[in-house]
Amino acid sequence: MPPMLGVLEAALYADDLDAARGFYGDVIGLELVTAKEGRHIFFRCDTTVVLIFRAEATREPPAPDTLPVPPHGAIGPGHLCFSVPMAALDDWVARLTGAGVAIESDFFWPNGARSVYVRDPAGNSIEFASPKLWDMPE
């Protein structure tokens, strides 16, 4: 097998990019990398980039004079899980609820890992979970 380093980027879709900027930038505190009005907003999360697109803007084939990125807009809510040290999950719950974000679910898995689920403004399922969920080191 050729080597693989991990996940470089993950994409979610939102119609309201301003609301997405508020959630991912202000509430979660991700660093803005770049934005294009009406098309996308990208954030850095450690070694991963979180891409938020307006799906309609990514369904069109690329123009001949642009980069040849194929269409890839999704339909419906997606899911993204942030890896969070177990000891920091209570702080995340406090930060999210303090920002008015409702906790959809907060529970411990049979292996002792904890997951906290919320919805972003576009309805995507956003999880904050201890790495133990997948037997990863913290």
Rank of each mutant, 00 (worst) to 15 (best):
M1I: 11
P2Y: 11
P2T: 14
M4L: 14
L5C: 07
E9Y: 14
A10Y: 02
L12R: 03
Y13H: 12
D15L: 08
D16C: 02
D18F: 08
G22D: 03
Y24E: 03
Y24K: 03
D26V: 09
V27C: 02
L32K: 11
L32Q: 11
T34K: 06
A35D: 12
E37G: 13
G38A: 05
H40G: 06
F43I: 05
F43R: 06
R44H: 14
C45N: 13
C45Q: 09
T47C: 09
T48R: 05
T48I: 04
V49C: 13
V50T: 00
A55W: 01
E56I: 09
A57T: 07
R59T: 08
P61Q: 04
P61R: 03
P62H: 04
P64F: 11
P64W: 10
D65T: 12
T66G: 04
L67E: 10
P71A: 07
A74V: 07
A74F: 06
G76W: 04
P77A: 14
P77Q: 11
G78D: 07
C81E: 08
F82H: 09
S83D: 10
L89K: 09
L89D: 09
L89W: 04
L89S: 09
D91I: 00
D91T: 10
V93Y: 00
R95N: 05
R95G: 05
R95E: 06
L96P: 12
T97F: 05
G98A: 15
A99L: 01
A99R: 02
G100F: 01
V101F: 06
A102P: 08
I103D: 15
I103E: 15
E104H: 13
S105V: 12
S105F: 10
D106N: 14
G112D: 00
A113Y: 01
S115L: 14
V116C: 05
G123W: 01
L133C: 06
W134T: 13
W134D: 13
M136A: 11
P137N: 00
E138A: 14
